[in-house]
Design a binder for these strands. Structure first.
Lengths: 236, 236
DNA sequence: TGAAAAACATGACAAATGTCATTTTCCCAT
DNA sequence: ATGGGAAAATGACATTTGTCATGTTTTTCA
């Protein structure tokens, strides 16, 4: 269930600076303000569903979203995350295909829907927007090839270590030093590409080995260099 | 080693019809003809290498290319293939990043290099080219999410069955009914994401079960519906 | 706030997959 | 055409990972 949220001006949106709209002329943002719809959503609520046709894109004003694909055994695979300033749903819209994955909120999230027609007229108005989106899509393609290679070649243990570090980079740490995102062990498993029990066991191992500490279910990365080593991470 | 090939006109290129240039105005193709360089390459020769900076894109006039990423144990992971009419190297160029993967010819292949400046001026000249490329990139992103989900959730046996069908669709069959692409068992393993020996064993099993036949090392798909079932393929 | 549901945790075992060693077959460059 | 090197094939075995069962803890919400 999407509940309408108050529409604020894009111009004043705190997340615009890091978004694909950062260099879009302010005067013309008013057109977006006119056409967009904003929604307030809670954890577990769905922004869009795999298999449906897209009619626009969603710009995230606040919150965290997981993008995932459901396998034919009904098990989800998390492909990536999106947060403030990110745009989601552009892949399906711009390829003219159905959504290849679903998007679900991980916490209280505010998204603005920009209809296809508005977006396309923005493209012609100012070509840097299309180029920005192209850049995002191409960057994501590179990320995807890394993920593919990791899934194909690394062990479960290595992948989990790497993902803990990726989550830390992506979401940062809260006041207790724990990774600031609310994920269940099952969701973690759906990212690593393994069974929930395997993730639980590995997290216990990591704790015993001093790589991490636990604060309830939240993970506190402790020994970063050991995590890097465990994850066999060699950044270019 | 790239050897220069005779430059033919893009306008007459047999693979232009299926390429991102299919709706580019013929008159303006002359500019590409002026700026491009064409190369003739043999199996195993490298078009570009992971980690290098791109200076343009490559358009494939004839032949087959594998796009792969080398893991940190030195093992390659094949991400995708490209053939006549496909464009490669656009991801790195348009994201402003280094090549995230390498490209190597699977057979005698002819490619035309289009420098960055020429490409960008083509973008501004006729915006449909940028949109075509965007569409390709976004489509590939959807393909990548399928691959990720398969690697994470399917068994090696299931993935191999699926890949045999994908290769059949992608490259077609030769006169003997065998999949028309020259891949070693190791390369197959680097696609499936498993050990070479595992692929060899599974191919033997598939043969014993009547799913495929072998013509030397080439694979002849025999029982398609059984392959679909084995690969647990449920197309949307 | 307290009962039910969900999430977390752990053990025991089975199944899948990888590794190493060895032999056979095929391909291609001289 | 042919000898050498690469690729394919197969066996034996180790290791990793998944599955099922069960108990505990945490969260949710009526």
């Amino acid at each position: 269930m999407k509940r309408f949220a108050e529409k604020n001006l894009c111009e004043n949106c705190p997340s615009r600076g890091q978004s694909v709209f950062h260099n879009y002329p302010k005067e013309q943002l008013a057109e977006v303000d006119r056409d967009k719809s904003c929604f307030l959503m809670k954890r577990g609520e769905i922004v869009f569903n795999e298999g449906n046709m897209p009619h626009g894109i969603y710009c995230i004003k606040k919150g965290k979203i997981k993008i995932y694909k459901t396998g034919n055994e009904g098990k989800d695979q998390i492909i990536r995350f999106a947060k403030e300033g990110d745009v989601i749903g552009y892949r399906a819209l711009l390829s003219g295909e159905k959504y290849s994955s679903s998007a679900s909120c991980l916490e209280e999230t505010e998204v603005c829907f920009i209809p296809k027609t508005a977006l396309l007229s923005m493209f012609s108005g100012h070509s840097c927007l299309a180029m920005n989106l192209m850049k995002v899509a191409c960057h994501e393609l590179g990320e995807a090839s890394k993920i593919i290679t990791n899934l194909a070649q690394k062990s479960t243990r290595e992948r989990l270590a790497e993902i803990i570090l990726v989550l830390k980079e992506n979401f940062g740490l809260d006041k207790d030093g724990a990774i600031d995102v609310n994920l269940t062990r099952e969701e973690l498993a759906n990212m690593v590409g393994t069974a929930t029990e395997s993730v639980i066991r590995l997290i216990s191992d990591f704790k015993d080995e001093g790589l991490i500490e636990l604060q309830g279910k939240k993970i506190i990365p402790k020994n970063i260099s050991a995590l890097i080593k465990t994850g066999k991470i060699v950044e270019a």
